[in-house]
Amino acid sequence: MSNENETPERRRERLRQEELKRNPTGALNDAFHRADTGGLADLVGSLGWKGTGVLILVIIIGFIIASIVLR
């Protein structure tokens, strides 16, 4: 499909995929910088469902380690 016949949705998706290939941690970096000025909803919204799951796991593991160390 040539670029002239490409729909705006397909073009946005293609550009998004190219950006992810060039900079895979860019969304995570943007999310943390946005969290400095925004709230938790901004952080979670920019991370996506996988990033949110990782963040929850890190928090849970942090609490477990802290409870063991501070016992």
Results as ranks from 00 to 15, higher is better:
2 S>A: 11
2 S>V: 03
3 N>K: 04
5 N>M: 12
6 E>A: 10
7 T>E: 12
8 P>L: 08
8 P>S: 06
8 P>T: 03
8 P>A: 08
9 E>V: 05
11 R>L: 12
12 R>H: 06
12 R>P: 01
12 R>V: 00
12 R>E: 10
14 R>E: 02
15 L>P: 01
16 R>N: 06
17 Q>I: 01
18 E>K: 05
18 E>D: 10
19 E>G: 02
23 N>F: 09
23 N>W: 05
23 N>K: 05
23 N>E: 10
24 P>Q: 07
24 P>I: 00
24 P>S: 02
26 G>T: 01
26 G>S: 10
27 A>E: 08
28 L>P: 02
29 N>M: 07
30 D>R: 06
30 D>G: 07
30 D>F: 05
31 A>T: 05
32 F>W: 15
32 F>S: 03
33 H>N: 15
34 R>Y: 05
35 A>D: 04
36 D>A: 13
36 D>V: 03
36 D>N: 14
37 T>I: 09
38 G>I: 01
38 G>C: 09
39 G>E: 14
40 L>P: 06
41 A>L: 07
41 A>Y: 07
42 D>H: 02
42 D>W: 03
43 L>W: 07
44 V>I: 15
44 V>N: 00
45 G>D: 09
46 S>Y: 06
46 S>A: 13
47 L>F: 08
47 L>N: 07
48 G>E: 08
48 G>S: 09
49 W>Q: 09
51 G>H: 04
54 V>S: 08
54 V>D: 12
55 L>S: 04
55 L>P: 04
59 I>H: 02
60 I>D: 07
61 I>G: 12
62 G>W: 04
62 G>S: 14
63 F>E: 09
63 F>P: 00
64 I>Q: 13
65 I>W: 15
65 I>M: 14
66 A>H: 11
66 A>L: 07
66 A>M: 05
67 S>G: 13
69 V>P: 00
71 R>M: 12
71 R>A: 14
